[in-house]
Structure formats: structure tokens, C-alpha cells
Nucleic acid binder design. Structure first.
Length: 304
DNA sequence: CTCGTAATAT
DNA sequence: TATATTACGA
């Protein structure tokens, strides 16, 4: 036990996108903010070869759009809010101070979230750290915080209800036992990801980093991307996939990952490529955005 | 300032 | 519904 601390980290390195390696740089050089600001709907434009470095906002400009009154009665879109940006050009730049589309937590994304929390340990698992460890571009601390809040509630609920009866001490792999599922359908997302045991035992024997044993195994090229979906025809959410590993959804690819935050990083290059195992159903329903709800679907490194 | 949580909004 | 936003105490 406790081989090296870099072990798990090394693993992460594999999962983590090598900023220098894989970064085909898809279109969209717009900084996330900008893109979001524009409310990109991705009209499936012809993919311009725009290639150039993009800039990340590392931390949003901290808008600080303070209150200053913004009743914003209008549906959406707001005029530029004075500022400095200016000038250039003359045309006012709307953007800035816009809301991002709702983030869709896909099982994969959630998996990353759980892994991060597991590795950080409950104690150190705070939104900021989690966000950094996840390394998913586009993810904000608020996103994580919000999700974390719900996730904690979910864990609490499970603890209280450790009951069950038969054999099912519950805990891992919910939804498996053919009998009683305790998930209220509100935890679908949470249920799709294995919950580390000690998550349910705060202050119990060992509450520290958790090391999932997953020796070299499958590994396909991972990519992180975000996609925004306008308002698809109509789709009733509520996916029910059992037995089959949940898969992500596909939509309009967008954005890319980069970001060089000040998160300490170890330099351990481990390049164990493991080909094979690429095939995996990927159809499944896609995101679900009904009702003109713009949604941002992040796609973390497909890891499972 | 960031976190945690409850209430609330969309 | 799921996620975002806000408020407030720690």
C-alpha cells in the first residue's frame, strides 16, 4: 500500500490532456468567456482553420459586475456594461457579463469529479481544489461547488439509509442489485458513479486518499470538449442505462482545454499507451436540453 | 477570501 | 428537473 504518491498522480497524468501533445486545437479560439458571452449556438459553421493560440481567462475577469442594478428584465442579453474595454474599434462589445450556459454533468464528468474528491480526500476536497484537479476547462468553482453541495446531500442521504435488507449493504454500485434501489431518481447522476467507501464514513478508520486499483487497462484517446446545444427538438431526459457503462453524449464539439493555472503540478511523464478497447457504443441519447435551454456539455477525458 | 449550507431562481 | 445564484455564518 502506499506505493508512491505519484502513482495516482501519474495515472492522472495519463488521463490529463497533455497540453503539448494532444491539442489539435479545434476551432473556437474564442476564449470561453467570449464564446459564452456570444452565446454561441454553433451554427455548424464550416470550421475555419483558425489556428492560433487562445487565451484563457484564468479566472474570469472577475467580473465584479457588482450589483449595480441590473434588473435585466429583458429575457436575455444585456447591453455592455460600461467598462473599459473599449474602445477599440468603436463598436461596443456586448459580451462580458453574460451567463454561461448551464453545465450538464455527464456521468463522465461526474466521474472525474468523484475521482478528484476521492483523491483529494474529503478534507481537502473543496471546490477550488476539485476544480483544479479535474482540469476541465470551462468548469468554474461555482459549478463544482454547486455540484458538490448536491453530492454531499446525496451521500448523507445514503448514509442515513444504510438499510436494506438483504444483503445489500448498499454502497457500491447502486442500481445493480435487482431489488431495491434506493435512489430516488434524483440521484441518477450520482448513482452512475461508484462512490468510494469511505465517502460514507466520515471519520472512520481511514479517511484519506483513495487509490482505485486500475492497473494499466483501457485507454483511448481522451479529449475534453464542450458542446453547446441549442434547443433540440424535444427529448425527455431521464436516461436509464444499466449494466452498460454510461457513455457520454455527442453534440457539437467545441472549445478545448488548456489553462495553466497555478496548481502545483509534478512533472512525471508517463506514456504508457494502451491501444485497443476503442470500441464502445457511443450512440445513446444525447444531451437533453429541452425548452430553449442552452446547455453546455463538458466532456472530460473519457475514463472509466 | 473561500467554504458550507439553505433558500431561491431559472 | 437540474443547475445557478444568492445570502450569510464560519
Amino acid at each position: 500500500m502506499r506505493e508512491e504518491d505519484s502513482n495516482w498522480f501519474a495515472k492522472w497524468e495519463e488521463e490529463l490532456p497533455s497540453p503539448e501533445e494532444l491539442m489539435p486545437l479545434s476551432q473556437t479560439l474564442i476564449t470561453p468567456d467570449l464564446a459564452l458571452a456570444f452565446d454561441i449556438q454553433n451554427p455548424n459553421s464550416p470550421l475555419p482553420k483558425t489556428h492560433h493560440q487562445q487565451h484563457q481567462q484564468t479566472t474570469p475577469p472577475l467580473g465584479v459586475h457588482t450589483p449595480s442594478s441590473h434588473p435585466n428584465s429583458s429575457a436575455e442579453f444585456d447591453s455592455a456594461e460600461l467598462g473599459g474595454t473599449a474602445g477599440s474599434g468603436g463598436v461596443d462589445e456586448p459580451a462580458r457579463t453574460l451567463k454561461r450556459p448551464r453545465l450538464v454533468w455527464t456521468p463522465q464528468l461526474h466521474k472525474r469529479f468523484v475521482d478528484a474528491v476521492a483523491h483529494l480526500g474529503i478534507k481537502n476536497a473543496v471546490p477550488k481544489t476539485i476544480m483544479q484537479l479535474m482540469s476541465v476547462d470551462g468548469l468554474t468553482r461555482e459549478n463544482v461547488a454547486s455540484h458538490l453541495q448536491k453530492y454531499r446531500l446525496y451521500l448523507k442521504r445514503m448514509q442515513g439509509l444504510s438499510n436494506g435488507g438483504s444483503g445489500n449493504g448498499n454502497g457500491s454500485i447502486p442500481g445493480l442489485s435487482g431489488g431495491g434501489m434506493v435512489d430516488t431518481a434524483t440521484d441518477q447522476l450520482f448513482a452512475s458513479s461508484p462512490v468510494p467507501p469511505h465517502f460514507l464514513h466520515p471519520g472512520r478508520g481511514n479517511s484519506d486518499h483513495y487509490m482505485p486499483f486500475v492497473p494499466v487497462a483501457a485507454m483511448h484517446h481522451h479529449h475534453q470538449m464542450a458542446a453547446v446545444v441549442g434547443h433540440p427538438p424535444q427529448l425527455q431526459q431521464q436516461y436509464r442505462h444499466f449494466g452498460s457503462p454510461p457513455n457520454g453524449q455527442f453534440e457539437v464539439p467545441f472549445l478545448s482545454r488548456q489553462s495553466h493555472q497555478q496548481v502545483q503540478r509534478m512533472g512525471t511523464s508517463v506514456h504508457s499507451s494502451s491501444p485497443v478497447v476503442p470500441s464502445y457504443v457511443e450512440d445513446l441519447e444525447s444531451a437533453t436540453a429541452a425548452n430553449g435551454r442552452k446547455v453546455l456539455t463538458l466532456f472530460p477525458t473519457g475514463d472509466d
